[in-house]
Computed example of a mutant assay.
Amino acid sequence: MGRKVLVLNQDYTALAVCSIPKAFLLVYLNKADLVAESENEQLHSISQAFPMPSVIRLHKYIYMPYKGVILSRQNIFRRDHNVCQYCGSKDDLTLDHVMPKSRGGRTTWDNLTTACRRCNSKKGDLTPEEANMPLRSKPFKPSFIMFLRDLGGSLESSWIPFLGKREKAIF
Rank of each mutant, 00 (worst) to 15 (best):
M99W: 13
C119H: 11
A115N: 06
K101S: 10
K123T: 10
H97M: 00
V98A: 06
T94I: 07
R117F: 09
T108D: 13
L112C: 10
T107D: 15
H97G: 03
H97E: 09
L126P: 00
K122N: 01
R103E: 13
L95A: 05
K123R: 12
T113D: 02
H97K: 07
N111S: 08
K123Y: 13
R117K: 10
R106G: 00
R106Y: 05
N111D: 13
A115R: 01
L95H: 02
T113L: 08
K101F: 09
C116N: 10
G104K: 12
G105R: 12
G105F: 08
K123Q: 10
K122V: 10
T113N: 06
V98H: 00
T113Q: 11
G124T: 10
G105E: 07
C116T: 01
G124E: 09
T113R: 09
S102Q: 12
S121G: 15
G124C: 06
S121D: 11
T107I: 06
V98E: 02
T107N: 14
T107W: 04
S102K: 14
L95Y: 03
R106M: 04
D110W: 02
T113C: 15
K123N: 12
C116H: 06
T113I: 15
S102V: 15
R118M: 10
R103D: 07
K123A: 11
G104S: 12
M99R: 13
S102W: 01
W109F: 14
M99V: 15
V98I: 14
W109E: 04
R117P: 01
T107H: 13
M99P: 00
T113M: 08
G124K: 02
T94H: 08
P100S: 04
S121A: 14
K123W: 12
T113W: 05
L126Y: 09
